[in-house]
Design a protein around this nucleic acid. Structure first.
Lengths: 201, 201, 201, 201
DNA sequence: TATGAATGAGCCTTCATTCAT
DNA sequence: TATGAATGAAGGCTCATTCAT
């Protein structure tokens, strides 16, 4: 009953978020209108505003949700492998295989815009930083593990390399989004090799 | 006289573009209003619309100009050095030293937004591609030179590595813009080493 | 059973009207939403619309009910006294003693807004007039009685003085609502004296 | 030049305020839309929002302006007479003669709504009080003068009677607005007599 | 029957663009 | 030519009312 109702609301919320993701990916945050989201999600304007306080809140919740999903996916990939090297390799190749039209890429596109958006707003700086920490921590843990395993060198600065990893990812995925016809695979392979060469024993 | 007039117009145009850069950097393309640009540039609204057809045109011309300036700067850096290795090294360190508030970073921020913007518009895809080619060509030339010089390995795929170079740059600068308090220098050094290690003999 | 059902409906209707009074008093007619009334009354939206055709109808019925209640209260006060003078005196003092937060004052506040509202709507003019007649009649009767009793002067225009009475009341209560910290009692006493002095023999 | 421009803006502002007065009088503050004001004033929506920050600001400025105008009018009436008694008498009769459709009555109607509006908003309480003070002061001064002149009794509480004066006025004008067909004149005369009888020697 | 989710007209406000001076 | 006032389309959001369960 109450549970069902909550489930239903959750479902509606997800429909809105899914529609918003599509719209923001297609037209950008400012370019997408609530009516666009209404059309895309099939949820009426009034309902949307019962579910979310404002367009901005939709944006934030979408970003938050996507961020969590990204983390979950990464953790899923990581847990499929045992050696630290395999884990990192898998992360590189994992994103490599996706379609540019896949949800992951759409999310990334919207996340990229959100990052620019946040960088202009003092009140979102902390959120940005928090998200960076989450991403860095995941990779730091793997590198740490690799060092303990004897796979990676002791001397490397773990945090810096985790940051470098994400900087690679960022440049990479952006590249693929902007220039979808490029020989992306070779590019990623190149970066993967560079990165791993630096940290492997 | 006509020349003088032309000069004056040029000057006004530049004032508008400079103002627009500032505004777009601070508020984003959609967030910045024509009135913002009027205030920032000191050029009246009427004049702006005499100089440019629309807000979008200001955007495009600003992006085009910035793109050229970027190329000029890069060429300037490159021509200060003789060996290919020094040239690439300088490019890495050149950006490394800038202030996040410098014009280069502002330009980059706005360029980043523009790239997302373009990626959503079919009619700008070609422009995007063109700009990529320009950037890739500069680096390709240096790598090519390095190969001929015997500094770099013969076997490497020149274009792919030029792309990788820019992917690095992108991830890098984005990182610095988003997280200005990070130990950016170490990060860039790390990437520089990775990259150069891969292509050097 | 049908009777019981009718009672129940009546009870619900009253809950809605009570809630509406509270809401309209706090936020004004336009400012109060149906949801406010739902929250305040504890009656669901669907039920409210089963009980009343529209928000406006709630307003009208509330005003009508309040008007009747006001008349009842006045009659109650009047019937407690025997001389006409005492009756009028009691009416002055009766309102004097109330709390600004009392239901009477809330009603008055909402009635005041309703009067302005009605004065702008041709179709409500007659209703307005009718309510005035009811109020004037009550006082007219008392004055009439006083004249017959020999308490009041024969020459006074009964209707005019009944109107003056209500004009006093209106200015008075409005004053108290708008400026709750004023020495209201002295004010009312002053008016009471003025009024009574004019009509007493 | 700048002066002219300022004059022009002032003129536009007045057009908007005049239009707003008309609209608010006809439909009430909430009922009147910006589009109504656009139509009534002949000033476009964009221009209105260059002149005023919001609909509420139009409201406040209109109320403030009207309040001042009311004071000016009262002062004008007062200064036409020399004895305190004549001054007060004139104030009673001055309003008596107006048409219900006159600007004064429209203003009063809108002011009445504004008073109810303010009484519901903590942040406007002070403004309300301030306006009461201004009105009370004018009358207090006259009564004071009358006491010094020997026209009025020494013992009366000046402020209380100034308040009573306005309470009369309020009840009075409201009466006329609500029931325009009433024998208003007799009513006012009655009140005038009551009031003056109480304070005269 | 009772509920509250769904709907969408309509509001206030912004801002790119035009136009009169 | 230079200016900024004028315009109104379009967007975010609210809320009275309806409707499905």
């Amino acid at each position: 009953m109450t549970l069902e109702k909550e489930d239903y609301k959750e479902e509606q919320r997800n429909k809105v978020l899914a529609g918003a993701l599509e719209c923001f990916a297609q037209k950008g945050y400012e370019g997408a209108t609530i009516d666009d989201i209404v059309n895309e999600s099939g949820v009426s304007k009034g309902s949307i505003y019962k579910l979310f306080k404002s367009k901005e809140e939709i944006y934030f919740q979408l970003m938050s949700q996507n961020s969590k999903e990204l983390m979950d996916e990464i953790n899923a990939v990581i847990s499929k492998h045992t050696s630290a090297l395999d884990k990192l390799t898998a992360l590189f190749t994992e994103y490599l295989g996706r379609e540019v039209n896949s949800k992951v890429f759409k999310s990334f596109l919207v996340q990229s815009e959100f990052e620019l958006f946040s960088s202009r707003r003092e009140d979102l700086r902390e959120l940005l930083e928090e998200r960076r920490r989450a991403k860095v921590n995941i990779i730091s843990d793997v590198i740490h593990e690799g060092i303990n395993n004897g796979e990676f060198r002791k001397e490397i600065d773990i945090t810096v390399h985790a940051d470098i990893f994400w900087s690679y990812m960022h440049g990479n995925i952006t590249h693929k989004i902007l220039y979808p016809d490029l020989p992306y695979q070779e590019l990623v392979n190149g970066q993967k090799e560079s990165f791993l060469k630096k940290i492997r024993k």
